[in-house]
Design a protein around this nucleic acid. Structure first.
Length: 554
RNA sequence: UGGGGGAUCGUUCAAUGGUAGGACACAUGGUUUUGGUCCAUGGGAUUGGGGUUCGACUCCCUAUCCCCCAGCCA
């Protein structure tokens, strides 16, 4: 297989490092989520990037939980993240790591820094620390506790660890430069006191490391070579570098790239959590959510998501990818994989007057014209069929290929039929359509050169199975829900019609849950999958996406 | 405002001093037992102004615009 995956600036950096024999010519990356929510498609970009690099350079990629804040994290999130990464297809069984496993090491390193006179215990309140940090243009003010004796710092820090102080009473700070133009360097906090139960370490600790202090050490301990993160950490890099060089430990290279943003959705864990908590969606895995588990329930394949992550590229400029590209990727992938079936979403009865009353016959249908190996199946055909309401028009425009009075169409895999008359109710609404079929067109073809433009899908009335179908639309009505210049609150821009449930859809009998398939294409209507709530008694399908539709009703 | 980043077709990624190219989107044809797929064609961009150079998206100067940072979040 040729490797024509696009190259990007991070590859260039790694190539240069390899050439310079930096890091003993090995490549080790990591994907470091905080378990404080479910993974979304933006994380998928990072996962594909980091695991992709490990793969390309024959290195390793760790899944590492950055679990340094017990207040926001939970095991539920840990489990969902592991499941999502594995579902995407990355083998992490032997590479699941936790920052919390390094807490003892972090602590020892902190002692080292204190002993070197590079860290101190500060008694100031959070408010005071904030107010003495200065501003974007004004320098900060040194804490009165900044020049405490090393021995005193050591004692105080040990007391912090042993639980002698309340939350917020003291912090450990790095002694750097309160007048640095980079706010991150103004004596950043290394440890804060949080008396809380941690999902892995329980009550062992009541001091927890801050991100900047912990992250570089995590990378260093694991022997990471290239620590890839998003743009907002760019001005944290000097601090990342400062800690590691003070401690003279293995020093990975931090590289920043632009995170993924998608139009017509939101992509921050906080915002997604708000949608979940306020019940705007049915949990993190709602098929409308841009979460990995949401996309999975929606019927997206791992390959489609990976293809998407490759196509969007990796660069440093802020970007908003069009949702259309994601849809292109599912269609592209599912076109090759999906089993073609017939399902009528909005049924109307079609009666074939010249077809025998009490017979039915099994017709051969190919499962996927894109892949002959997928074989064929039999579909029952009889006198009364369900067809799609939108496939009939009494007064049809010229370019309408479907059924209308006097016109002949093909019933897919079956016969040609010609519409003879319609039946209406008292209000004039069409409730049934009558037609005649051509017995010589069995299989949907004749050799007489007849041109039959329209092809309809159908389901035999007496063999049809009822199903519920859930149609999804974009979750938001605007392309940038978070544009505060246009919208006060992104919640206001939620699409009230993002979920449309239809009952009594008629599907072909092969669609029971006994012969379960992962991906379906309902012929002419879209890609679908079984909903996780679906069972043999009640079939429920989710629409993954529509098919492309070049037909424009004039 | 101090600091850190960034600006190329509608969107996104490339071009690393040498023909501005790909993908998606859009448009128009063709094929078709899915108005799907597939195939072909087309329109469409270097933020502005100077400079260096035989030659500039690329280097220099200047202006403008956008993003990030003042959590004991990550």
């Amino acid at each position: 297989m040729e490797n024509n995956k696009p190259n990007h600036f991070i590859h260039d950096i790694i190539d240069a490092d390899l050439k310079a024999k930096k890091y003993a010519s090995k490549v080790h990356t990591r994907f470091p989520p905080e378990p404080n929510g479910y993974l979304h498609i933006g994380h998928a970009k990072s996962i594909c990037l980091n695991f992709g690099i490990a793969d390309k350079y024959k290195g390793t990629c760790n899944l590492r939980f950055d679990d340094t804040n017990p207040l926001k994290e939970s095991d539920e999130y840990v489990q969902s993240i592991i499941a999502d990464v594995e579902w995407l297809g990355y083998d992490i069984k032997n590479n699941i790591l936790y920052a919390s496993d390094y807490f003892d090491i972090f602590y020892e390193h902190a002692i080292t820094l204190i002993k070197a006179g590079k860290a101190y215990v500060d008694d100031q309140s959070a408010e005071l620390i904030k107010s003495t940090r200065g501003s974007l243009s004004a320098p900060g003010i040194n804490s009165p506790f900044r020049d405490r004796a090393i021995e005193e710092n050591l004692t105080l820090f040990k007391n912090m660890k042993s639980g002698q102080y309340a939350n917020g009473e003291k912090v450990l700070r790095a002694k750097i430069d309160m007048s640095s133009p980079n706010l991150n360097m103004r004596d950043p906090i290394m440890y804060r006191i949080i008396h809380a139960n941690h999902h892995r370490t329980g009550d062992k600790w009541c001091i927890y490391p801050m991100y900047d202090w912990a992250h570089g050490l995590e990378d260093s301990i694991e022997g990471i070579t290239h620590s890839i993160c998003t743009l907002e950490f760019e001005d944290h890099r000097p601090l990342y570098d400062w800690y590691l060089s003070q401690l003279k430990v293995h020093h990975p290279q931090q590289i920043e790239f632009a995170r993924l943003d998608l139009d017509y959705t939101v992509m921050s864990k906080r915002k997604l959590k708000e949608l979940v908590d306020n019940k705007h969606v049915d949990g993190w895995s709602d098929p409308r959510m841009p979460t990995i588990s949401g996309l999975r329930n929606r019927g997206y394949s791992p390959d489609a998501i990976k293809m998407f992550c490759e196509k969007i590229g990796v660069a440093k400029r802020n970007n908003i990818i069009e949702y259309a590209l994601l849809e292109y990727c599912v269609r592209e992938d599912l076109n090759k994989k999906a089993m073609r079936v017939m399902a009528v979403l909005d049924p109307i009865k079609l009666i074939i007057d010249n077809y025998p009353d009490d017979t039915s016959e099994d017709l051969i249908a190919d499962n996927n014209p894109e892949n002959e190996n997928d074989g064929t199946r039999l579909i029952p055909f009889s006198k009364e069929l369900w067809i799609e309401k939108s496939d009939f028009m009494e007064d049809a425009p010229k370019k309408y290929f479907r059924l209308s009075p006097g016109k002949e169409v093909r019933l897919k895999h079956a016969y040609y039929v010609t519409c003879t008359k319609v039946v209406k109710d008292d209000t004039g609404r069409v409730i049934a359509i009558h037609c005649n079929y051509d017995p010589n067109s069995k299989g949907g073809w004749t050799d007489d050169g007849r041109k039959v433009r329209g092809t309809l899908h159908w389901v035999s009335v007496k063999h049809a199975v009822n199903a519920e179908v859930r149609l999804y639309d974009r979750l938001f009505t605007v392309d940038k829900p978070l544009d505060t210049k246009k919208h006060n609150n992104f919640i206001d821009t939620i699409n009230p019609n993002s979920l449309h449930i239809i009952q009594n859809c008629k599907v072909e009998p092969s669609l029971n849950m006994i012969d379960f398939k992962q991906y379906y294409q309902f012929l002419r209507t879209g890609y679908f999958c079984f909903d996780s709530q679906s069972n043999a008694e009640k079939l429920i399908f989710n629409r993954t996406s529509t098919l492309r539709d070049s037909w424009k009703n004039p």
